[in-house]
């Protein structure tokens, strides 16, 4: 007796690793939302307010990019990252853009394969101590216990600084700013070191801010800026020129309040191109023609962003210093928009 046999066909599915490496710009547009890596909470730079809305100097840059790409500054999802997790988050594609007080270094450009597309804050590393410690210079910190955030450049600068000055210290490694503050206020460390802007932001949230001093030494250069993945040049250009648009706006006196008025009345050719009145510069970036106008309308120019979040008069009270426009003796300088 012959049995009829049915053989199920084994479909050997060859699973090719589907690498959807389309440009980030297309991804963001398709998603209708920008995912921005931000600080876990650094008042003035990136922190959620009492209502859960993110606000700050870095956060506003994310909003400006969202306004330029999607035409709506509210279409941003903020992903809080620590000093340790931020680069992995960007590398793995969890975030499109990282704006989180990150220092531009050669290693991060080359070995970590990132692109720092601009410097939105020129900073340097400093020390904060309690006033009653009686210390007036970082070089007097021999034998001190120092709180330091892990995964940062400040960790390496600190080791270098103490070695160069031939003095010793005891490091206490902490995960983020809030933990550092807790340890510092409890007296578990004599000094807290991070970027001077970060120290000022921390101090602003302390209940007894007047009892803490930031020492005069600035022991490193810390150019902080937005970061994108290496190799996605178009996306990098979008972020860079959104930032430049804010700088040019300040230079030309365009604010969030008068941007529409200026667009209608200006006779400056660069402003016309920037605001999309003439030419198709926006389209060349893969954006709408009024993209940069939207960015400026959403958050204001660089000066407005600075003054609103961290400038003099806010609790953080930072002077423009190096971050003044080049026309006012600072380092903030945008390439020409043409």
């Amino acid at each position: 007796m012959k049995k009829s046999v049915f053989f199920g066909t084994l479909a050997a599915t060859t699973m090719a690793a589907g690498l959807a490496m389309a440009g980030t710009l297309e991804d963001v547009k398709a998603r209708g939302e920008l995912i921005c890596g931000s600080n876990t909470g650094l008042t003035g730079f990136g922190a959620p307010d009492a209502n859960g809305n993110w606000a700050g100097f870095d956060v506003d840059l994310c909003r400006a990019v969202a306004a330029a790409v999607l035409g709506d500054a509210s279409k941003v999802k903020f992903v809080p990252t620590t000093g340790e997790t931020r680069f992995t988050a960007l590398q793995s594609g969890e975030v499109d853009l990282l704006v989180r007080n990150s220092t531009w270094t050669a290693t991060r450009d080359s070995e970590l394969a990132f692109d720092f597309v601009a410097v939105n804050y020129y900073d340097g590393q400093g020390f904060m101590v309690k006033k009653d410690l009686g210390v007036s210079s970082a070089k007097e910190l021999d034998g001190a216990t120092v709180c330091i955030q892990t995964g940062t450049t400040t960790e390496l600068n600190l080791a270098d600084f103490f070695k160069q000055n031939n003095i010793s210290y005891q490091p206490v490694t902490v995960q983020d700013d809030s933990e550092a503050q807790r340890q510092y206020l409890a007296g578990a460390c004599d000094a807290y070191t991070t970027d001077v802007s970060g120290l000022a932001a921390s101090r602003a949230t302390m209940p007894d801010a007047e009892n803490h001093v930031i020492l005069p030494e600035v022991i490193s250069k810390e150019p902080l800026g937005p970061v994108v993945r290496h190799g996605d040049n178009n996306w990098g250009d979008v972020v860079r020129w959104t930032y430049f648009a804010l700088l040019i706006a300040e230079e030309k006196g365009i604010t969030s309040a008068n941007v529409n008025e200026v667009a209608a009345s200006t006779s400056d050719e660069e402003v016309k191109r920037l605001l999309g009145v003439t030419g198709d510069m926006g389209a060349k970036f893969g954006l709408s023609n009024d993209a940069f106008k939207n960015a400026i309308a959403a958050v204001g120019n660089y000066g407005e962003v600075f003054a609103r979040n961290i400038g003099e008069g806010t609790t953080i009270n930072l002077a423009r210093g190096l971050n003044a426009l080049w026309t006012q003796g600072g380092l903030q300088y945008a390439a020409p928009f043409r």
Binding site: F87, Q91, E111, L112, T150, G151, T173
Partner: peptide, 14 residues
């Protein structure tokens, strides 16, 4: 803390 924390972060070799 050392290999999986600081070294990983400073070298980017996850």
């Amino acid at each position: 803390g050392t290999l999986g924390g600081i070294t990983l972060n400073q070298t980017g070799r996850e």
